[in-house]
Amino acid sequence: MVTSATRGAGPFVAPAAILSLLVALVPIAFILYFSTMEGTSVEPFRTILKSSLFHRAMTTTVVVAFWASIISLVLGYIVALHLARQTARRRAALMVLVLLPFWTSILVKSYAFTIILGREGIINSFLSWLTGAQVALPLIFNRFGVMVGMTNYLTPLIVFPVLASLLAIDPALYRAAEVMGAKPIRIFLTITLPLSAPGVLAGVLSVAVMALGFFIVPALLGGRQDLMLANLVDFYTREVLDWNIASAVGVTLFALVGIFAIPATLIRRTKGRIAS
């Protein structure tokens, strides 16, 4: 569809398009090529489908991504609700706080969590001091650690799309509902929630897409049971040195991400059409 906004966009879009073609599509083509034994067989896919390690990593990936998205949604929605109620100036200031962790490398943040959550980390030391007994809660190298690390990273990605849809709600709707006698809970359930649904959906899908591909967090904060597909790719590439299997796992992950990424893009497009 050519609109006045898209006409003549070629020169502006071309540099970025060419760059992403080179750094993304070409490697992906190589991975596809490797995963099919240079295009001769689907043996690597057969191998991983029979591998219990792959099955476990696949299940872990889906389960972890699911819960990380849900927890991020709940936490992010609450933050967005709070931000939407502030004055524009206060909101701008608080937004910096939401973005602050975003400006820190995920590697640095993950190491920071090992200090906070570790056996002799800040939390356990504090609890030991408080109770006078040796406390060593298992907060790290397990699913809990992975969830903490991932939701910490993903929550801001929920806050922004949800906040945008909350701010788009006409404040007069709240006044009208109040005058008609509605209590705050009913107002939330009948107005706030349904009208912020597009933001929620966009946020959750993009968070899910990111969560599926997590690598550093499960590697640093997870245990042996928290191997995700990205870690499995790493395992086959560097430990087993079987690049065909590694590529097959990579292609599978790519397909999995596609399942979420495609509806996310579609939603964004319909939203844009409604807004225009």
């Binding site: 006044r175 009208a176 005058v179 008609m180 006698g181 509605a182």
Partner: peptide
């Protein structure tokens, strides 16, 4: 407002 029974 919800207890006033006003229409707007």
């Amino acid at each position: 407002p919800r207890q006033r029974g006003i229409g707007m």
